[in-house]
Amino acid sequence: MEKLSFRHATRTALPGTRASAITGVVASGNLEVLLERNLAPDACHVEIDTAINGYGEVWAAVVADFVARRQPGGLTITINDGGARPDTVSLRLAQGARLMEAP
């Protein structure tokens, strides 16, 4: 098990009013993502608990890419990972952001 933590500044807040959302399931090759709107509108924190050690750089890149694309300002994103591939991680993050953007 490995814990990773990333802190990003965003240009804007993520739109929408939903306070929290969850997507995905902890299973082999899958992950769950919990999103909570509880930070300043220009901050995004991502906390990861992963079953597979040694992929910190890959996680950093996937998270940075997500933050750059979606500008998820205001969110704490907490991830329980069962060993998902980067494309699955990106998909779940995008799903989570979409849920939070719902009016």
Binding site: M1, I22, V25, V26, E32, L34, D49, T50, A51, T78, N80, D81, G82
Partner: peptide, 10 residues
């Protein structure tokens, strides 16, 4: 579960 090096669910 952490004792067994297994991921948890919320």
């Amino acid at each position: 579960l952490p004792l067994f090096e297994l991921p948890r669910a919320f």
